[in-house]
């Protein structure tokens, strides 16, 4: 990276460290932090959308739809979490490949499951065998995002379902008294008011989501855990210009601090958001704000 880094063996102290921390592999390591943040940025809204749909269908008047919503919430929340992650990545992959297999290779006659193998025709493979490495990476990252969204969507659905029921009934009745239709009361009265009831649950969920991101490693993504293990391991002079002992402990300490910072920042921001949403609400918090002003 820097001009003085041409011969690291002559360097010492901080200059050595500054060269060491800016090698190519370390830049990939820093990129993987972006991967984690990207996962959070994509998963949070998608999971919220899943949750909103789940909550909406759980309180629907049409019974089968309501069962579907409630079933989704109950099933995902009832299964141990990590098992769910490991299960879903394989299951989703096989589901996609099976659907493509049926669509693309109708002439195929052998069963898909043969003993211990899951065999689909070449054209149905996901991603295709001849595609570039980045396609493989994006595909597995996409699978991870869907898995996270399904699991956290169910948790979010549960929170939102509770929040929708917590909005005082009188508020909805007022809307109806003004001649609003069901749809109008839902969107204009219920949805704007439910957030203050949902926020404690959702912020808890956000914290849990942050802490679930290292599970990406289990899903076979080259994330921060993967790089910390790779980079921290003992390096001998034969393979690198920067030999060092087993430093994995320090790399994981860095990850630990990264997550603690994330938690601290989120806590502060969410407390501020809660203050903003409480303003003018008919809750104890809103009342306290009114008295203080």
């Amino acid at each position: 990276m820097f001009s003085y880094c041409t011969d690291p063996s002559t360097l010492g102290g901080l200059t050595w460290l500054s060269c060491f921390l800016t090698t190519g592999v370390h830049l990939s390591f820093y990129m993987s932090f972006l991967k984690v943040l990207g996962l959070l940025a994509i998963t949070a809204p998608v999971a919220m959308a899943f949750g909103f749909l789940g909550a909406m269908s759980a309180r629907a008047g049409f019974a089968p739809l309501s069962w579907l919503g409630k079933g989704y919430i109950a099933v995902v929340r009832g299964v141990p979490d990590i098992a769910f992650f490991l299960f879903f990545v394989i299951a989703l992959d096989q589901l996609f490949e099976y659907v493509r297999h049926r669509a693309l290779c109708p002439e195929w006659e052998q069963p898909v499951r043969q003993g211990n193998d899951f065999i689909v025709c070449q054209a149905a493979k996901l991603p295709l065998g001849n595609s570039a490495a980045w396609v493989h990476e994006t595909y597995s990252f996409g699978l991870a995002v869907i898995t996270f969204a399904i699991v956290f969507g169910a948790f979010a659905a549960n929170v939102l379902f509770g929040a929708m029921r917590a909005v005082p009934r009188a508020q909805l009745e007022t809307g109806e008294a003004y001649g609003m239709s069901q749809r109008q009361t839902f969107w204009r009265i219920l949805v704007p008011q439910m957030w203050v009831y949902a926020l404690p649950g959702l912020s808890n969920l956000w914290m849990v989501l942050i802490k679930a991101t290292p599970l990406l490693f289990l899903l076979g993504i080259e994330d921060i855990v993967y790089w910390a293990r790779e980079l921290g391991g003992t390096k001998t002079p034969q393979f690198t210009d920067y030999p060092h002992g087993d430093w994995r402990m320090w790399y994981f300490l860095a990850l630990l601090i990264f997550y603690l910072l994330m938690t601290k920042v989120s806590e502060t921001l969410l407390a501020r958001l809660m203050g903003r949403l409480t303003r003018g609400q008919a809750t104890a918090g809103g009342e306290a704000q009114r008295k203080a002003a």
Partner: peptide
């Protein structure tokens, strides 16, 4: 404030 998974590794 930190993931149990990272705590195990560390």
């Amino acid at each position: 404030g930190s993931p149990l998974f990272i705590q195990f590794f560390f």
